[in-house]
């Protein structure tokens, strides 16, 4: 199981700023190991963030997102104390879901 995400969410003037740091190798599939064999691709393929059951961001990624991906976005209408849930899924079907309370 992958390490948990670090998520910060804070509301200011009715806009929630969400910062997410995921822990993932993001292997491109183009790199060769010491023996000269291609290292198979392993990367987060989809990400979604929800607030009270409503999707506030969805993303499709390729392997060109940096290792240990960082993502920041803003959405309107979130309340302090509520939760934002972020889910990712990689190309091997592994999933991770974490949540943060809006500060």
């Amino acid at each position: 199981m992958a390490d948990p995400m670090r998520i910060r969410a804070a509301v200011r003037d009715g806009v929630v700023n969400v910062k997410v740091l995921m822990s993932h190798e993001m292997e491109t599939g183009q790199r060769k190991d010491a023996a000269g064999k291609l290292v198979p691709a392993h990367y987060i393929r989809s990400v979604s963030a929800t607030y009270q059951g409503k999707t506030v961001l969805s993303a499709q990624w390729g392997p060109a997102i940096s290792k240990n991906p960082y993502l920041e976005f803003n959405f309107k209408g979130g309340q302090k104390g509520d939760k934002v849930i972020v889910i990712w899924e990689d190309n091997k079907g592994e999933k991770r879901s974490d949540e943060a309370t809006i500060a």
């Binding site: 997102i65 991906p69 976005f73 959405f75």
Partner: peptide, 22 residues
Amino acid sequence: TPLVASFGIPAGTEGNISTRVK
């Protein structure tokens, strides 16, 4: 492969995104 990422922006979400790419 030029395509790096695509973000869907639902109504209510602002059109600004930050990330890190290779």
